[in-house]
Design a protein around this nucleic acid. Structure first.
Length: 809
RNA sequence: GCUGGUGUGGCGGAAUGGCAGACGCACGGGACUUAAAAUCCCGAGUUCGAAAGGACGUAUGGGUUCGACUCCCAUCACCAGCACCA
């Protein structure tokens, strides 16, 4: 078979016939399958694209065979920095290069012959898409969830923009590896923190990899504890957050972050010089230096003391740069006896290490933190666990009015503004009279101008575009300026899965409430794990928000999530030209895409990925030829003798077992096992082929089922073979073959026989036998009889169809 | 440090607590061929043995069980994420 040319032929025919058209009226058995859409990079489709799109396309095809009305749209995440950086290098406008790249990539994706529903294509840089990105912004603004504040932000000096926490990797910009600077700027945020608890709780019911759920839990970082108010002699309140309120009796010192507003008020004149010097130094250090676990904690005494609300102890207050100003209250209590690093800190600055406190009688008492009775010098704490002690102590604080239960989250609000050109304009207007007001919905979209000066200047290049920036205030009609920033591209992608079903309509709504609730949420979402704390979290947040404003009945956009593993170079490192990276096209042209697809399915676990080795591609071609030979031979067999032979039953067994196992393997994305099952069936066919007097009807059925089973894994090959064996177009409109359970129950099977849990023999038994009959037969076995002779059988275990174990003494 | 994951032949990898290593690669052998390729068939965890057969085997050490790759506890190694988060 000429694999390369038949692919072209069928791709064209399928596309012409619109074979995989999604039927929006038949939603009772819909299946919404989605791969994370890609950034139009303009490069040729590489192996990673095939790995992602090709194999999940096979999954979609499988679902179609199973009778599902599969919705599998495709689009492009088209705004973003790469196009702009490319523009700065080449002078080609981001819009032009992006349009061109989309054209190239779309053509290649279509050439894959995949079942994507191109008639629902979305491109995030199209005004009819970003109209809804802006609409979303306005809705969030109206609910107080989009807001501006002056805040320390991550600023990438090379990209000249603010980036989100999620885009900072080890203090470096994830795109260009520049060291990220920390600036105070007035910025737009989405209040994702309002949903922290719900985002956490919602994870439990999702069919997602445990790993990904853990990543999100970790990222949200819920910490249940308490706030404790300490007062200085001057009556200044310092509130600390602690998850270990039970150690309150052992507080040796308090530490405040240099940036905390209260720090100023704590500095006593005699300490002024050293403290200022310290703060100045701290400001120079970057976050990594400050928060590295390897560098010892340093700090400086402010000169102030506070009173421990429970013990009345006088506790010194330090400034230290390891305390993070933005987490919780930015003030921490140090318990030297409990925490190793607090211990080191206390020793370094000669602070009292409160292993001992004075009890009511003035005697010194040891402070083990498990002995709460003694610790608190009160019988009411006797024998308490840490958790019980925590609760009791906080209750005492509440009674004193000096503390409360408190939960903190590591999650910060989502910084969404970018000082870049190639993004969705933020639909806000700054009016000198009315302040900041949203663009009225009827005026959306705010069009991104085809600017000529898109060079980033740290303030938003749109600010230099006069015809864009100058506008009138929608409230008072006076002169006003538009917001010059654009949105993070993760805003674009946070709702695309909800917009897809409506991609064909440019209505007055982002989507029809009725329709989205029937077709959504996404049943299965396929994409990389690298989006665990970014895109996947943002999308969940936006879904919950849309639910809250009455747009959605569901609040989790992705029911099931599959991460494909990464294909690595042959040296196990990220793929590059040096370690064997090739364009997928090189293989497609030589062996055909089906051979490539089969090899990818078979050679690595989809979910784990691994180093790429291409030896197998040619073997898959051989395998397909082997399949073709037997199929074409069997297709021409004539007559219909039906001998009841063992060989025939063996083949029937393998066929039906394959039908069953293949399905299971596909459902769990275990494509490697699925292909192995196909090979087993083919081997069984060859074995049966040696039989002289064949059951022709069985051969024909096997052959037909085999070709259908191949349809998801090797779509062009299966279609061609389907035609060649004389079946009616198209194999992709067939139903998945039914497994005849009666054929996978054999009359006789071989089971293992154990004596004292050790295999001593194998014997054939009839499956119709009762356990008693099986035992009787097993005991009659020569070897077994010899072993049990003269001994007492203590226990007889029969696992039907598996094993017999006789315990003798 | 915390969280999650992984650990099975030379390699990729199979195994609802029930015959470990399916399927394939590489390897060896045979058939066909003048020969090679292709194809078809057979073999193969390691080790002792001529063979029959035996011993040892799923990172390590324990445990539960008639029986553990699978469940539990501890340890080690590697991968990933978070990390003076109080």
């Amino acid at each position: 078979m000429d694999f390369v040319n038949i692919e072209k032929k069928w791709n064209e025919k399928w596309e012409k016939d619109n074979l995989y058209k999604f039927d929006p009226t038949r939603l009772d058995k819909k299946y919404y399958l989605l791969e994370m859409f890609s950034y139009p990079s303009g490069a040729n489709l590489h192996l990673g694209h095939w790995w992602n799109f090709g194999l999940s396309d096979s999954f979609g095809r499988f679902k179609r065979l199973k009778g599902f009305n599969v919705f599998q749209p495709m689009g492009f995440d088209a705004f973003g920095l790469p196009a702009e950086n490319y523009a700065l290098k080449t002078g080609i406008h981001p819009e032009d290069s992006t349009r061109y790249n989309i054209e190239v990539m779309e053509r290649q994706l279509r050439e894959m012959g995949a079942t994507f529903n191109w008639d629902y294509e979305l491109v995030t840089c199209n005004p009819d898409y970003y109209k809804w990105t802006q609409w979303l912004f306005v809705q969030l603004y109206k609910k107080g969830l989009a807001y501006q504040k002056e805040a320390p932000v991550n600023f990438c000096p090379k990209c000249n923009t603010i980036i989100a926490n999620e885009q900072v990797v080890n203090g470096l910009c994830e795109r260009c590896d520049s060291e990220v600077q920390h600036k105070n700027m007035r910025q737009w945020f989405f209040k994702i923190t309002d949903y922290a608890d719900e985002l956490l709780a919602g994870l439990d019911k999702l069919d997602w990899p445990e790993k990904t759920k853990a990543l999100q839990r970790n990222w949200i970082g819920k910490s249940v504890g308490a706030e404790v108010d300490f007062y200085t002699e001057d009556g200044l309140k310092l509130t600390v957050f602690t998850s270990r309120a039970d150690t309150l009796y052992g507080v040796s010192f308090l530490v405040i972050a240099p940036e905390n507003k209260l720090t100023e008020k704590l500095i006593k004149p005699e300490q002024e010089k050293v403290v200022r010097e310290y703060i100045e130094n701290a400001a120079k250090k970057d976050e990594i230096e400050r928060t590295s676990t390897t560098t010892p904690k340093t700090g400086v005494f402010t000169g102030s003391y506070v009173i421990n609300p429970l013990t009345g102890d006088k506790v010194p207050v330090f400034v230290a740069d390891y305390v993070i100003a933005s987490y919780a209250t930015g003030i921490v209590m140090g318990v030297a006896a409990h925490d190793e690093r607090d211990f080191d800190f206390a020793k370094k600055y000669n602070l009292q290490i409160k292993r001992v406190v004075n009890d009511a009688n003035g005697n010194e008492v040891e402070l083990p933190f498990t002995d709460y009775g003694k610790l608190c010098n009160s019988e009411e704490f006797d024998g308490m666990t840490s958790a019980q002690a925590k609760e009791k102590i906080v209750e005492k604080l509440i009674a004193l009015g000096k503390g409360r239960f408190k939960t903190n989250y590591r999650l910060r609000d989502w910084s969404v503004a970018r000082q870049r050109y190639w993004g969705c304009p933020i639909p806000m207007i700054h009016c000198p009279k009315c302040g900041t007001v949203p663009v009225p919905e009827k005026d959306l979209p705010v069009m991104l101008p085809h600017a000529t000066d898109y060079k980033p200047d740290g303030e938003g290049p749109l600010g230099k575009c006069e015809e864009f920036i100058n506008t009138t205030c929608p409230v008072c009609g006076g002169k006003a300026r538009r917001e010059a920033d654009t949105m993070d591209t993760f805003v674009d992608s946070s709702f695309y899965m909800l917009r897809y079903p409506e991609a064909q309509h440019n209505d007055n709504e982002i989507f029809s409430r009725d329709y989205i609730n029937k077709i959504g949420p996404v049943d299965c979402y396929v994409g990389g794990v690298e989006h665990a704390t970014g895109h996947l979290l943002y999308s969940r947040f936006i879904s919950k928000f849309l639910r809250d404003i009455g747009m959605l009945d569901f609040d989790e956009p992705f029911q099931r999530l599959i991460h494909q593993g990464m294909i690595l170079g042959n040296d196990g490192r990220k793929m590059s030209k040096r370690n064997g990276a090739k364009n997928a096209d090189d293989y497609v042209r030589e062996f055909g895409s089906d051979a490539l697809r089969l090899h990818m399915m078979f050679s690595l676990k989809y979910i784990e990925g691994g180093p790429w080795s291409d030896d197998g591609v040619k073997h898959m071609k051989s395998f397909m030829e082997r399949v073709e030979r037997i199929c074409l031979k069997w297709a021409t067999l004539e007559g219909d003798s039906a001998p009841e032979t063992k060989a025939e039953k063996d083949l029937e067994f393998v066929l039906n077992k394959t039908i069953k196992d293949y399905e299971e393997s596909f459902e769990t994305f275990s494509f490697n096992v699925a292909v192995a099952r196909l090979m087993e069936l083919v081997n069984a066919m060859y074995k049966y082929d040696t039989v002289e007097n064949k059951n022709i009807a069985l051969c024909k059925k096997t052959l037909k089922d085999l070709v259908i089973l191949f349809a998801p894994a090797a779509p062009h090959f299966a279609e061609e073979l389907w035609q060649q064996i004389g079946e009616e177009y198209s194999v992709h409109n067939q139903s998945y073959p039914a497994c005849d359970e009666s054929k996978i129950v054999l009359d006789t099977i071989e089971i293992a026989v154990q004596v004292n849990s050790k295999i001593v023999s194998r014997t054939n038994i009839a499956t119709s036998w009762t356990n008693e009959q099986v035992l009787e037969n097993v005991k009659a076995d020569e070897k077994v009889a010899a072993l049990i002779a003269g001994k007492t059988i203590v226990k007889e275990i029969v696992v039907p169809g598996r094993i017999v174990n006789l315990i003798v003494r």
